[in-house]
Design a protein around this nucleic acid. Structure first.
Length: 293
DNA sequence: ATGGTTGCTTAGCAA
C-alpha cells in the first residue's frame, strides 16, 4: 500500500442554500476529499444533497430549521454516522455535531455554541458543551479501561485531570467553528475581545482543555504568524481591514497530526460577492497504511 | 465596539 493523500476542510457557510454555488465551486477547484460544514441552517430533508452527489460526493447532514446545522461532504463512503451527543441537555442546544468514519478516519463537524455574553446561561452552556465534546471523543477513542467518563465537568469538579487521553494510534479529525480564539495572535484586537465570548479567558481555557494533549491545531503546525483569521464580522467593513479572529479549526489527533503536510485558511471565498462571514480552513494528510507509521 | 450586517422567518432572533 502506498501513501494516501487526504484533504479535509472546515467551513462555516452561514446557510448552505445561500452558499451552494460557492461551496460547489470551491470543492471542485480545491479537490477537497472531505468538507465539514457548519451553520447549514436547513433540515436534512431540504439539504441540497443532489447537487453534491452530481459532483461525486455523499452528504451526511444533521440540520434543523433556521439555525445551526452541520454536515460532512465526502467523496468516500461515510460509515458509522452519529448525530448529536445522544444527551437531551446538549442536544437541546441544536444540531451542532455530526460524526462519520471515512476511510479509517473518524471525522466530526462541530458547531460550538457562541455563548452570547460572558456570564450568561448560554455562555455556561458553551463551556459545558466543549467539555462534553471532549468526553464524547475520549469515550469513543480510548480503549475500554474502567467505566466511561460521565462528563468533563464532573471530572473537573472531582479534582481529577479533565480526562484521560485518547489512544495514540486513533485517527480522529474534529473540524469546526469553535467560536473561540486561542491566543493574542489569533485576534485583531485582543484587548477588546478579551471581554467577549469569542476570546474570554474561560472560553480559551475550555478550548485548551478540549485539546488536552490529544488534539493538535493543524494550522499552527505550518504557520507561526499572527493576523491569520477565519472569521470577520459582516459589519464595519471588518474584512477589508482584516479585523477578524481565528475561531475555525481542523484539529487532528496526534497520530494524524504527524502526517499533516499542509494546513491553511483560504480567504478567496470570503472576498467574493455575497460571502459567508467565515473562510474555509484546510488540512492535508499523507496517510500511511495503518500500523506502519 | 453604544450602531453598523446577514439569514432566517415574518419583527425579531442569532451570530
Amino acid at each position: 500500500m502506498s501513501t494516501r493523500r487526504l484533504r479535509i476542510a472546515s467551513w462555516n457557510v452561514n446557510s448552505i442554500r445561500m452558499r451552494l454555488d460557492a461551496v460547489l465551486g470551491w470543492l471542485e477547484t480545491t479537490g477537497t476529499d472531505i468538507l465539514c460544514l457548519q451553520e447549514t441552517k436547513v433540515p436534512d430533508d431540504a439539504f441540497p444533497s443532489d447537487a453534491f452527489r452530481s459532483l461525486g460526493y455523499e452528504v451526511v447532514s444533521f440540520g434543523q430549521k433556521a439555525y445551526n446545522g452541520v454536515a460532512i461532504i465526502t467523496n468516500d463512503k461515510p460509515r458509522e454516522v452519529t448525530r448529536g451527543f445522544g444527551d437531551a441537555t446538549l442536544d437541546a442546544e441544536g444540531a451542532r455535531l455530526v460524526g462519520a468514519t471515512v476511510g479509517g478516519v473518524r471525522v466530526y463537524s462541530a458547531y460550538v455554541p457562541n455563548g452570547k455574553v460572558v456570564g450568561s446561561p448560554s455562555y455556561a452552556m458553551k463551556l459545558q458543551w466543549l467539555a462534553r465534546l471532549r468526553t464524547l471523543l475520549v469515550n469513543r477513542h480510548t480503549s475500554a479501561v474502567g467505566a466511561p467518563l460521565a462528563s468533563g465537568q464532573a471530572a473537573a469538579n472531582a479534582g481529577m485531570p479533565h480526562s484521560r487521553p485518547i489512544d495514540a494510534d486513533e485517527r480522529v479529525v474534529v473540524c469546526g467553528d469553535f467560536n473561540v480564539a486561542a491566543e493574542d495572535r489569533d485576534v485583531h484586537d485582543p484587548f477588546f475581545w478579551r471581554m467577549q465570548v469569542l476570546f474570554h479567558s474561560e472560553a480559551r481555557e475550555a478550548l485548551r482543555r478540549f485539546c488536552g494533549n490529544d488534539f493538535v491545531d493543524t494550522f499552527r503546525l505550518h504557520h507561526e504568524e499572527g493576523g491569520r483569521y477565519s472569521w470577520w464580522d459582516y459589519r464595519q467593513g471588518a474584512f477589508p481591514k482584516n479585523e477578524g479572529l481565528r475561531i475555525d479549526y481542523v484539529f487532528a489527533s496526534r497520530a494524524l497530526a504527524a502526517s499533516c503536510i499542509e494546513s491553511d485558511i483560504d480567504k478567496q471565498p470570503r472576498r467574493q460577492s455575497n460571502p459567508s462571514d467565515h473562510a474555509p480552513v484546510t488540512a492535508t494528510f499523507a496517510l500511511e497504511p495503518k500500523g506502519e507509521t
